[in-house]
Write a protein that binds this DNA or RNA. Structure first.
Length: 464
RNA sequence: GCGGUACUAGUACAAUGGUAGUACGCCGCCUUGCCAAGGCGGAGACACGGGUUCGAUUCCCGUGUACCGCUCCA
């Protein structure tokens, strides 16, 4: 991981956030190459799941939403943990988990008053803990502060005058932007079930412990789909299997992440969200361990639409034109993290090759995913001007770099480190034969290609 | 949030209570004839703030950031 972080900084993929001011914890800025790489990831996702499917459409909803949205979704009350501090040793524990553990260890059936897990009132949790003298697992004393609900949503204010503003939240997930627009999309696109709505956008969560580079950050970008269906005509397991397969194909075939570094993991019952009937994660083997790339399909049932119907008073049901049945559609949610997928692409592409007297670092991105498609390299400085004309001509079709600094071998190495699949060397013969030497990063083979045939040659390799 | 460790050029590392070095990288010039050639020249760092001291990058305190552990993870 240190190698990747260092390479990212050195070559302009990812920088520490607000670095000149000493940084801001857990923020990362994408540099020129990283921004392009992440954009390529998002573009390929959008192409795969929106543009190339008849049963999918895309939207781009606002990050700021009417606060009632979050009451309906359960985030205001449920998206928080009852945390308390041990006054003796200053450690922090989750009150509900501590109680559950105690109940389990003591084989007790007894529970606090109003017991509803993490949503139990704080004073009932504390009363139970003090009553049973549940000790601090660190220091063994029972000396707790009252549990406080730590809401994981970022709060801000709408309105320029601080006191008069209305509290609003930065969305903790993009999904709700889709649900609140369900009716609008249905009416404007005339889609029939089953169909899905996709969205790419930022979400914000006050995670207690972020970390591992860009893997878990408080500001992150999601690529989410809500796929609506009638559970009577399409059983959720079928929809689920389809999305599991399609999601996995995206990761392996489109992004080129190796299968041996991937695994599917079904969520255990106790880690499922309260609304969810099932989820499978696609996990990638990060240097710090297995980590989720994608929740291949959380089955959210009809929970969200029902909640929004209840809180908004608007009718969000679907009238099936064939059966005349009116019902609230069920939802399956395949959700990708754009930042962690991009990180997995970076890690997955990283290779070191031992050459005779040195090590060559090469980022083997799939050609269409690479930040730069090709680099034009004049063999010597005398050819710079003509080569630059070629580079400019190629810009209309490809992402092009132009490098004149240092020997030709050194420039090949630079492009290796940033994963550029093709290097075009413009030499003295090029002036006469109108051809360049194309060097393929993966095969290390060289072909002499006429400039007029370049597009055909590169496109063939790009879509291989 | 808690505890521990660390912080020196773009990166990786040295050294030092009194002028901060090395390698690679970067820039310019000369050179160049397809896989990190060479020569010359150049830019570039003590995370931030305070204290002790004649003098602090070095010692002390605070802040920031990162890493490890705990905790947490819709």
């Amino acid at each position: 991981m240190d190698k990747i972080i260092s390479l990212c900084k050195r070559r302009g993929f990812i920088f520490p956030g607000s670095e000149i001011y000493g940084g801001l914890a857990n923020t990362w800025d994408y540099g020129p190459l990283g921004a392009q790489l992440k954009k390529n990831v998002k573009d390929l996702w959008w192409k795969t799941f929106v543009e190339r499917r008849l049963d999918m459409v895309g939207i781009d909803a606002a990050i700021l939403m009417n606060p009632t949205t979050w009451e309906a979704s359960g985030h205001v009350s449920g998206f928080s943990d009852p945390l308390m501090d041990c006054k003796s040793c200053k450690s922090r524990e989750r009150a509900d988990k501590l109680i559950e553990k105690w109940i389990h260890e003591n084989s007790s059936e007894e529970r606090p008053r109003n017991w509803a897990g993490e949503k139990t009132p704080a004073k009932d949790l504390l009363e139970f803990i003090n009553d049973k003298k549940i000790p601090c697992p660190i220091c063994g004393k029972t000396n707790w502060t009252e549990p406080k609900a730590f809401n994981l949503m970022f709060k801000t204010r709408q309105g320029v005058v601080e006191e008069e503003g209305k509290d609003i939240y930065l969305r903790p997930e993009t999904a709700q932007g889709i649900f609140v627009n369900f009716k609008n999309v249905l009416e404007t696109t005339r889609k029939k079930l089953p169909f899905g709505i996709a969205q790419i956008g930022k979400a914000f969560r006050n995670e207690i412990t972020p970390g591992n580079f860009t893997f878990r950050t408080r500001e992150f970008e999601q690529m989410e789909i809500e796929y609506f269906f009638d559970p009577d005509s399409s059983p959720w397991q079928e929809v689920f299997e389809m999305w599991k397969k399609d999601s996995l194909n995206f990761v392996t075939d489109i992004l080129g992440i190796k299968k041996e570094n991937l695994r599917l993991r079904d969520h255990e019952k106790d880690e499922l969200s309260f609304y969810s009937k099932g989820t499978t994660d696609i996990e990638y083997k990060f240097p710090f361990g297995w980590g989720e790339l994608c929740a291949a399909g959380a089955y959210r049932t009809d929970y969200d639409l029902k909640q929004h119907e209840k809180f908004s008073g608007k009718n969000l049901s679907y009238l099936d034109p064939y059966t005349n049945k009116t019902f609230i559609p069920h939802v399956l949610e395949p959700s990708f993290g754009a930042d962690r997928v991009t990180l997995a692409v970076l890690l997955s592409a990283y290779e070191e090759e031992q050459l005779e007297e040195e090590t060559r670092i090469v980022m083997k991105f799939k050609p269409d995913l690479a930040p730069l498609t090709l680099a034009v390299l004049p063999l010597v400085n005398k050819l710079n001007e003509q080569a630059e004309h070629l580079a400019n001509d190629l810009l209309k079709n490809y992402r092009v770099d132009f490098d004149t600094s240092g020997s030709i071998g050194k420039r090949y190495r630079r492009q290796d480190e940033i994963g550029t699949p093709f290097c075009l060397t413009f030499d003295f013969d090029s002036l006469n034969d109108n051809a360049v030497t194309v060097r393929d990063r993966d095969t290390m083979k060289q072909d002499r290609i006429n400039i007029s045939a370049l597009k055909e040659y590169i496109d063939r390799k790009l879509f291989d």
